[in-house]
Structure formats: structure tokens, C-alpha cells
Amino acid sequence: EEKRQVKQVAKEKLLEQSPNSKVQVRRVQKQGNTIRVELELRTNGKKENYTVEVERQGNTWTVKRITRT
């Protein structure tokens, strides 16, 4: 359940930055209360990979860091 929520948060964050792209989740890793989500962003056939680190704060998820990989 929490992985599902985190995927959603990570996707939304990337789509905010580039709204007309397609996002696909590649991998989800958990480390303590930080969850790392690896995503693939496609814009006009151009692929970019991103890693989004999401942290739990109380009962909400906040995006800590977005890295292009």
C-alpha cells in the first residue's frame, strides 16, 4: 500500500515538471523511511531516467530529491 502511494507521489511530481510526458515506474526500493523510486520519463520519444527519493513525514509523503540518472 505505501509503495503504491509513493509511486503515485513520484509520478505526479515528475509530471508537474513536464506535463505532456509519459512516466513509467521501473523500480521501488525501501531504505528506512525513505523510498527510492526509479522512473522512466518519455517526452516525444526521448527517454530520460530519474530517481525520486520520497520520505515519510507524519502521514504524508514528501519528495526529498529528484536525480536524473
Rank of each mutant, 00 (worst) to 15 (best):
V25Q: 01
A10T: 02
Q8S: 04
G45T: 09
K30T: 15
I66V: 13
A10D: 00
E40V: 11
N20Y: 06
R42F: 15
N20E: 08
L41C: 07
K30F: 15
N20A: 07
G32N: 06
K3N: 15
L14G: 02
K64H: 06
K13S: 09
K47H: 09
V37R: 00
V9L: 15
T34Y: 12
K47Y: 08
N59W: 05
V63M: 02
L14P: 01
V25T: 04
T43G: 07
E40S: 08
K30W: 15
L14N: 01
T34M: 11
V9F: 12
N59E: 13
K11E: 07
Q29H: 14
R56G: 06
Q31K: 09
I66C: 04
W61P: 02
S21L: 02
K13F: 12
R68S: 08
Q29M: 14
E12Q: 13
T51P: 00
R4Y: 10
T51W: 14
T51A: 11
E1H: 08
G32H: 05
S21N: 02
E1D: 10
N33T: 13
L14C: 04
L41D: 02
R27E: 06
K7W: 15
Q31W: 15
Q29V: 14
V54L: 08
E55T: 08
V54F: 10
E40Y: 11
T60V: 14
V54W: 01
K3F: 15
E48H: 04
K22Q: 13
K11Q: 06
V63P: 03
E38R: 09
R42D: 14
K30I: 14
Q57D: 13
V23T: 03
E48D: 06
G32I: 04
T51C: 07
V63K: 00
E12M: 07
K7T: 15
Q5G: 09
S21Q: 02
S21I: 01
V52S: 01
K3P: 03
K46R: 09
N59V: 10
T62H: 08
K3G: 09
L39D: 00
K64W: 05
T62R: 07
V9Q: 05
E55C: 06
Q17E: 04
W61K: 00
R26V: 12
K30Y: 15
V54R: 00
G58Q: 11
T69D: 11
E53G: 02
E16A: 07
V23W: 01
K22G: 05
E38S: 13
T34N: 08
V37N: 00
V63Q: 00
Q5E: 10
T51D: 07
I66P: 02
V6P: 05
E16L: 03
K11M: 15
K7V: 15
R42S: 12
R4P: 02
G32K: 06
R56Q: 08
E38I: 11
V52E: 00
R36D: 04
Q8H: 07
K46T: 11
Y50V: 08
V37Y: 01
E38P: 00
K64E: 07
N59P: 12
S21V: 04
S21T: 03
T69E: 13
R56L: 08
S18K: 10
K22E: 15
V28C: 08
R36M: 15
G58P: 03
E16I: 04
I66A: 03
E16C: 03
R4N: 10
I66N: 01
L15P: 00
R36K: 13
N49E: 11
Q57G: 05
R42G: 06
K13E: 02
T69H: 13
T67I: 12
P19H: 04
A10K: 00
L15G: 02
V28N: 01
Q5K: 10
S18I: 10
R27F: 11
Q31M: 14
K30E: 14
T60A: 09
K11C: 09
L41F: 02
N44G: 10
V63G: 01
N44A: 13
R65Q: 12
G32V: 04
A10S: 02
T69K: 07
Q24R: 15
R36I: 14
K46N: 12
I35W: 15
T62Y: 13
L39S: 02
S21M: 02
A10C: 04
E40W: 09
V28R: 00
K46S: 10
T60N: 14
E40T: 13
E12L: 06
L39P: 00
V54N: 00
V54C: 06
R27M: 07
E53K: 03
E55V: 12
L14K: 00
K13N: 03
V54K: 02
R27I: 06
Q31I: 12
S18F: 15
K11S: 12
K7C: 14
V54H: 01
N49W: 13
T43E: 14
N20I: 04
R26Y: 08
N20R: 04
E38F: 15
K22C: 05
R68G: 05
T67V: 11
R26L: 11
N20S: 08
R42W: 15
V9E: 02
G32A: 06
V28L: 13
T62Q: 14
N44D: 12
L41M: 09
E38H: 14
Q24N: 10
K47V: 12
R4F: 07
E48M: 07
L39N: 00
Q57S: 11
K30D: 14
R36S: 13
E48Y: 04
K3L: 15
E55K: 05
V28G: 01
V23Y: 01
N44S: 11
A10E: 01
Q5R: 13
P19Y: 01
I35G: 04
Q5H: 12
K64L: 14
N44R: 08
V25K: 00
T60C: 05
K64F: 09
E40K: 05
Q57M: 11
V52R: 00
Q17G: 07
R4E: 15
T43Q: 13
Y50K: 01
E16Q: 09
L39R: 00
P19T: 02
S18R: 09
N49S: 09
L14V: 07
R65I: 06
Q57Y: 12
T62G: 09
N44T: 07
A10V: 10
N20P: 02
V9G: 01
N44I: 07
L39E: 00
T43W: 05
I35R: 03
K7I: 15
V52F: 02
S18V: 13
T69M: 14
E53I: 12
N44K: 11
N33I: 07
T51L: 11
I35L: 07
R27K: 08
V28T: 08
K47I: 15
N44C: 06
W61F: 14
K11R: 07
E48W: 04
N59T: 10
K13I: 13
V6T: 02
L41S: 10
T60P: 01
Q17M: 15
G58N: 11
R26K: 13
A10Y: 01
L39V: 07
V9K: 03
Q17K: 09
P19K: 04
V37I: 05
R56F: 08
E55N: 05
K30R: 13
Q57I: 12
V23N: 00
K47P: 07
V37G: 00
Q29F: 13
N59Y: 13
K30C: 08
T34C: 07
R65K: 13
N20H: 07
E53S: 09
Q24D: 11
V9H: 03
T60Q: 12
N33H: 09
V37K: 00
L39I: 10
T51S: 13
R27Y: 10
K11I: 15
R27V: 04
Q31N: 13
V52N: 00
E12R: 06
E38M: 15
